[in-house]
Design a protein around this nucleic acid. Structure first.
Lengths: 184, 184, 184, 184
DNA sequence: AATGAATGAGAGTTCATTCAT
DNA sequence: TATGAATGAACTCTCATTCAT
């Protein structure tokens, strides 16, 4: 009875896994609690609602991407090619783990029509992602062209993640990354 | 392909709309019944379960695509360019209506991990779609290359549909279609 | 599994009893369902929420009072004294049963500060009650005086019902009724 | 009468406000803790349970009334009229603040049927109140009559407080006090 | 074919309470 | 004294499903 010390961050970490695999609606608070070794009721000490939890999850993952993944696009002393390679290397395990794909992409298709509360968080994630790609493309292209290439690249990566999940085949994702790098 | 005549088909037609917009888990049998002007209980005369209904829906939509959309790829006396144009023209309103995207793509991301019952139906749909695209690409390319281009095309279209939904912007989808045609 | 035919009216009848005795917040939907021989979930077929049920209950009881109790105040061919007597005779068993008092008085003290949704229903009930008393008093008094006497009478009756409940003593209520009749 | 010095009393003071406004069941331990600037868990250092807290609250308020309000009824060298006036003057702000009425009256209607633990505390409060009024009435009336007038007076005051809360009108309460004084 | 009514499991959430620190 | 964390029961409500009529 009362002791451990489950931190908000640990809960978020577990929740990311569960949400990525099962999706938002299919995942119950019981599922999440179980994954954290808590009882359903105990969960609400840390997060006031499922929605609030998801919001925290999206912000946390977004923060991780900003600092650990997208930031690679802006690193000095590296060629565009190198930055793409390193960025994809960093990104790949996160998105292919458990063949669960991209939390933001999954959430977009699942909730965009019925839960507008997440829309902004989803959009800003993709905006930052696009900005990072655009920055790399600008090495070789005009702003305009770089922007268009970035948009197309995210489209390809997300589409590829969908096909990866459908066909249980991570190479689909990897090849899409290669095609993105080739656009340079 | 399931094509009776009376009510079953009408239910399916309504269900497609609701499922496309709201997704599988978020849509309740009540929602579906209401959309059909039926009472919840009456629904079960036509379909034994939500899953069975979704299966019928996927089959029906797949059938429609096979006969009305993918078939365009195989029409004689038309250039590859013409066939792509006509195919996209047919496809566009279906996928952009209500900004709800592609039922099969939505279902893939939502259910692939937690409801494997749909996997095969989803895969065969995408297989047929790819085959149609491949057939057009083969006009100008080797089988191998045509297959790769088809795969990439579906990836781009599905990725674009996701971004269309996220940003409320149908042109994202339209431009992806143009890029596909340009691969010829 | 599925058969009976619990009507909305029967549910309301049972709910009145339970709510009068236990109050609004202390009464759970389980309590109410049990009292009706239903399962918790079945309840929601008939009423969409606890609040909606209570609203229906208040309206139903109000209707009963209007037609069966307050109407006595307006009956022709009877003296004011007779009308008071008959009105109280009708009213007494309803308010003293189970020593549970007046549903509207109970609800007023319990919910007026925290559930403003009921305020209007409660006020209109008391307005009608006052109007009935005022009508009787007008036999012997000016409109103004009759109104004041009616206000005081309801105050006395409700105060007496509180004391009746506190001391388990129905005579407290009966004597208050006598005092009201003496104001004539 | 419970009068320590430090925090227990402050908690009680805050709790009275919250309970008077929101009632017993609608008020959660969280609400109370928040009102005291404490965490839920900390509350249990001071009071073992919600019920125990309410008991302490009732005793404390009863003590206050005994010493500060009812005592006025027994003051020497003042006419009955003066004592009533001063007593009501003291009582009025307590009962009309926030239009929340009388804690004991509210508690009576809310808990008498379902929480008999409070019954005695509620009864003794009203007994003391009646005794005070009776004492004043005995100045001009026989013991018997004074007792009856006291009973009626409390009934009127409590009934008036209910109507005050229902109609947001403090004058209803004030006029009831005047009518009580007129019974002298 | 369709309806109205019921079911029972489970959803998200709240709450009084506990207790190691 | 007070806190942070956990508990577990209960709560309101939803849902897929069943079935007599």
């Amino acid at each position: 009875m009362a002791k451990q010390k489950t931190t908000k961050d640990e809960i978020i970490k577990k929740a990311v896994e569960v949400f990525r695999k099962q999706g938002y609606y299919k995942t119950s608070m019981s599922d999440l609690a179980k994954a954290c070794g808590l009882l359903k009721g105990s969960f609400y000490y840390h997060f006031a609602s499922k929605e609030e939890l998801m919001q925290a999850v999206l912000e946390s993952v977004h923060g991780y991407y900003t600092h650990k993944v997208f930031s690679i696009a802006y690193e000095k002393g590296k060629t565009a090619q190198q930055r793409f390679e390193q960025l994809f290397e960093k990104q790949a395990p996160i998105m292919t783990e458990d063949l669960a794909g991209c939390l933001f992409g999954n959430m977009t298709l699942e909730t965009i029509s019925s839960n507008p509360e997440f829309k902004q968080l989803l959009q800003t994630f993709f905006n930052d992602w696009k900005a990072a790609f655009q920055h790399i493309f600008e090495e070789n292209h005009s702003t305009e062209v770089a922007k268009a290439l970035a948009d197309q690249s995210i489209i390809e990566v997300e589409g590829a993640l969908m096909m990866m999940r459908l066909y249980d085949d991570k190479t689909i994702f990897e090849q899409a990354c290669l095609r993105v790098a080739e656009k340079l």
